[in-house]
Design a protein around this nucleic acid. Structure first.
Length: 516
RNA sequence: GGCCCCGUCGUCUAGCGGUCAGGACACCGGUCUUUCAAGCCGGCAGCACGGGUUCGACUCCCGUCGGGGCUACCA
């Protein structure tokens, strides 16, 4: 691999990390890792009015949660945004940690001199010019053009050939110029998109874009081009909404004399109504899913399968991170936008809960158990091997092994396991009424309680033997005993196998519940 | 409106001229079982439409329709 792959994710800190951004970031990450390249994080914070500290932190946290570690970019080192802290203040504290990589700074607001320098070159070579039109004048011009029936209103070109005197006059008026790229009306600008093939635009459709705003800040277009070029980005992998931004950007690369990178435009994530995913569709921030109890591994897997597939008749759906990295290819990225549909995510999350390492699952569930008061906030004694003490990891692991296949999201653990950890668990009144009310059942349970108290080893087999033998004696199907026993021990009619459940609960708790 | 992108089951998708159009989620049956869940078996369901090209089109071309994106001194 002669030239190393360098890709980037370039979010703006104007809102919490969106699943669409995470999707794009994921594809960049997979592409970089697959090729042994570099994944860069750059913060596009040139819109000073909309930046927030919380957004910036959510970018760091969101990417980290998904496991999308960046090779170059900010070094936040876990610095947390303080309550009510301004973006600037938080930025300064993050900056104090230094940055990863040699192509920085990785915040656009820290790169202003770079934009000025390149803008000056364009100005000097005549490829760009100062425009003194005010936003109001531009708006008016657009209106006039529309009124005249012009299909695609463009910049009038009024400032394209200003004489020195005219410029001086504008300056004297107190006007602040912006910088525009001089775009020819002739010819065609085309590129070979890595997922869509050749895409062409007529140059006459392309406006004289603004490079630097009158406040001296770069526009998005100029910022990306200068940064992508200077950071030696080889592949620009971004959302489909940027397709029509690409030709003007290519023109900028050419004007600046930079090599043009490869482009790959990814399909968008849509809501159920096929519109670009937005707040209206419910949760769009990645944290909403984390908070709901989605595992990062499941989200990673799920997101990868929207807009990409392993192809070639592959029917596998569950992939480890490593498998995804190994198989990822832009060639199998689909062109059509996909709907972000939670049903499959739910299934996938449940699948991960069922299949993941039990110890890891316990770690993931611990906070929920603690919040619910089922386990103490102090760390559960990980050294203890007492399997019957509900305060040990050993016990919690046995509980999870039994209950995890009924969980779809992590918080389900509370509802599924409460009766294992406390005697004060909720009881289903209807179940109690149905299975425990009549005198005959009570009598049978008393007999069972006595016999169970006599068994030597409290194991699945011995428990089952006692119950089935008694059922035989009284000429009843075992189910007639099993159901009441379950309600008595767990307060509900559903759950793991009764004997497994009782074995984990232990003799003491079961007998106690049977005498209640 | 203009420019651009896209169009296979409800959803995510495989397909890259000749397939009974495959898989997954969801849904519906059945099975296993002490319940639920999981598992297993089976079912429902799709090439937007119209023209071409071709011996042969889901696949190639054109058009129509539909959806989406862009059209800012936002990113």
């Amino acid at each position: 691999m002669a030239d190393t792959v360098r890709v980037r994710m370039a979010p703006s800190p104007t809102g919490r990390l969106h699943v669409g951004s995470a999707h794009t970031a994921l594809f960049n990450y997979l592409f970089a890792r697959h090729h042994g390249g570099t994944f860069i994080l750059r913060i596009e914070d040139t819109d000073m009015t909309r930046n927030t500290a919380e957004s910036l932190q959510s970018i760091f946290d969101g990417l980290r949660w998904l496991g999308l570690d960046w090779d170059e970019g900010p070094e936040d080192a876990g610095v947390r945004a303080r309550e009510g802290e301004t973006y600037q203040d938080y930025l300064q504290r993050v900056l104090a940690n230094g940055e990863r990589g040699e192509a920085g700074p990785y915040f656009q607001t820290q790169r202003l001199p770079l934009y000025e320098e390149h803008a000056r070159k364009l100005l000097e070579s005549g490829k760009a010019y100062r425009c003194y039109c005010t936003p109001e004048e531009l708006e008016q011009s657009r209106e006039e053009q529309k009124a005249r029936g012009v299909k695609a209103p463009k910049y009038s070109g009024r400032c394209r050939q200003l004489s020195a005197e005219q410029e001086a006059a504008f300056v004297a008026e107190g006007r602040k110029p912006c910088l525009r790229l001089r775009v020819s009306d002739e010819g065609v600008t085309a590129f070979d998109d890595l997922v869509r093939g050749r895409i062409e635009f007529e140059n006459k459709e392309i406006d004289d874009l603004i490079l630097l705003k009158s406040n001296g800040y770069p526009t998005y277009h100029f910022g990306v081009v200068v940064d992508d070029a200077l950071m030696r980005i080889t592949h620009v992998i971004r959302g489909e909404e940027h397709i029509s931004n690409t030709p003007p950007q290519i023109l900028m690369y050419e004007a600046l004399g930079f090599p043009v990178p490869q482009f790959a435009h990814l399909p968008l994530l849509l809501g159920r109504d096929r519109k670009k995913l937005s707040k209206r569709h419910g949760a769009t921030e990645i944290f909403a899913y984390r908070d709901k109890g989605v595992l990062p591994e499941a989200m990673f897997n799920f997101l990868a399968l929207i807009g990409w597939s392993p192809g070639e008749g592959e029917t596998q759906e569950i992939f480890t991170r490593e498998e995804l990295i190994q198989r990822f290819s832009l060639a199998h990225v689909s062109k059509a936008s996909g709907i972000f549909d939670l049903e499959k995510l739910e299934w996938m999350n449940a699948t991960y809960i069922r299949q993941m390492d039990l110890e890891q699952l316990l770690d993931a569930c611990l906070p929920y158990l603690q919040q619910a008061g089922l386990l103490p906030l102090s760390p559960v004694n990980s050294l203890s091997h007492e399997p019957m003490n509900p305060l040990t990891r050993a016990y919690a692991l046995r509980v999870l092994a039994l209950t995890r296949e009924r969980m779809r999201y992590l918080p389900d653990v509370v509802e599924q396991t409460n009766y294992f950890f406390t005697d004060d668990f909720p009881r289903d009144a209807k179940a109690v009424a149905k299975w425990l009310s009549d005198a005959e059942t009570q009598e049978r349970l008393k007999v069972l309680r006595d016999r169970l108290s006599q068994v030597g080893a409290w194991t699945i087999t011995t428990l089952e033997n006692v119950v089935r033998q008694y059922a035989d004696e009284i000429g009843q199907p075992a189910a007639r005993l099993i159901h009441p026993l379950r309600v008595a021990c767990t307060g509900r009619t559903v759950g793991p196998g009764l004997f497994e459940t009782m074995a984990v609960l232990g003799r003491e708790r079961c007998l106690k519940r049977l005498s209640a």
